[in-house]
Computed example of a mutant assay.
Amino acid sequence: MADRRLRSLASVAGIIALVYLTGRLVTTGFFALAAHLSGPTSRFGADATIGSLAMGWDGQWYWYIAAAGYPAELPVSESGQVAENAWAFMPVYPFLAQSFGTVLGGYPAGAIIVSLAAGYAASVLLFVLLRPRIGAGAALWAVVFFSNGPLAALFQMGYAEPLFLALLLAALVLLTRRSFGWLYLLIPIMGFTRPGVLAFALLLGLYGIMRWLRRRQDPLPTRQIVHIIALGVLTTVVGFSWQVIAGIATGDPASYLETELAWRRAWVGAETGFVPFSGFIEASGMWFELWGMPRALGPVVLGLLVAAVAGALVWAPSVRGLGPEIRLWSASYLVYLLAVFFPQSSLFRLLLPLTPVVGAVAAPPSRSWRIGVLAVCLLGQWWWIHEMLALGDTYFRIP
């Protein structure tokens, strides 16, 4: 029985590999076209190449960290405020990419290999996560959408998102199977790969409440209670530890928050401090004003959008079919984004951890529906690559 299961998993992994590699060929073609279209107004310039597109923007920060580490003294702008610096980025991805780069001939090769491998691992884990909920056929279609989706370019860029997503999907698989032991290892790695692990802490809290409320229908042994609480504490500590590390290394306890706020100042000017949820509220008004609409309308539309997403997570049948863990994760991550992020064009990239919800789109069995969704995914991918890389200015189009 075990041998048959292993052979079945190997066969599926092979099929997913073909799907994933096909997607990477499509993305490479989009990259080549974007490099050709890149002009003097793009950050990449008229002489852009596939390689320069792959290692641009945040990829340069990770490369810098691999080469020089983190500054012991925070840089300051002409106004005397903390400037953008490497402390905004976590260390696991650049140091892992550097390790591979020493073998492959340089950091860029190591970074792309890590992203490619993590993207494939995420594809397999997505299938494993979704198969018990929507069936093998629909789960494979979810992988097709994922491999060719609007954010698929990240699998070929020097960004930490694919690695974080692979770790996240592994953690969700373990949580749904109630195999808590490996989470003690995964959570710290995930927490030092990129920001977002505090959303997993919220997930564990909500998951624990759900299990407690359902304990008569779904028994909750004491051992599992201990694991859920201990993992929640661990995840919270990991989520705040980078701020402590940055503060000790630089001698400024507020160094991490000040570094993150430095990225907002290009839009809002002076920043008085971090206030949870203020970023989205302020930005919604700002963007509506820039688009020629009343500023006061922005927060109203934001509120309606939040209500619509919440309603879909609670009542939409296709989403409910994904199971409580995926729905609770989606809610937790969206709350996290609303609390800490200032929305601009990089918001699209930050939606990648919501990947498990793609199962709701893949579940309908209609072939015409699925082909239509795939077409939308490919169009979305080209739009993202064209806007963020081919056009790639430093204000409206930041990947």
Rank of each mutant, 00 (worst) to 15 (best):
G321Q: 11
L322C: 04
L322Y: 05
L322E: 04
L322N: 03
G323E: 00
G323C: 00
P324L: 08
E325I: 15
R327W: 01
R327E: 02
L328D: 02
L328F: 05
W329T: 03
W329G: 01
W329N: 02
S330C: 08
S330I: 00
S332F: 01
Y333S: 08
Y333T: 07
L334I: 14
V335R: 00
V335G: 00
V335Q: 02
Y336N: 07
Y336D: 00
L337Q: 15
L337W: 05
L337K: 07
L337S: 04
L337T: 11
L338C: 04
L338N: 07
A339C: 10
A339T: 07
A339P: 01
V340P: 01
F342D: 02
P343W: 05
P343L: 06
Q344P: 00
Q344H: 15
S345P: 04
S345Y: 03
S346W: 14
S346T: 07
S346K: 13
S346M: 09
S346R: 14
S346A: 10
L347E: 09
F348D: 11
F348I: 13
L350W: 15
L351R: 12
L351A: 14
P353C: 12
L354P: 00
L354C: 11
L354Q: 13
L354G: 04
T355V: 15
T355C: 12
P356A: 10
P356E: 09
P356L: 08
V357F: 05
V358Q: 00
G359N: 07
G359D: 07
A360D: 06
V361I: 15
V361F: 15
A362L: 03
A363L: 15
A363T: 12
A363C: 07
A363F: 10
A363R: 13
P364Q: 10
P364T: 10
P365E: 10
S366C: 00
S366N: 13
S366T: 12
R367N: 09
S368W: 14
S368C: 13
S368I: 15
W369A: 11
W369E: 09
R370A: 09
R370H: 12
I371F: 14
I371K: 08
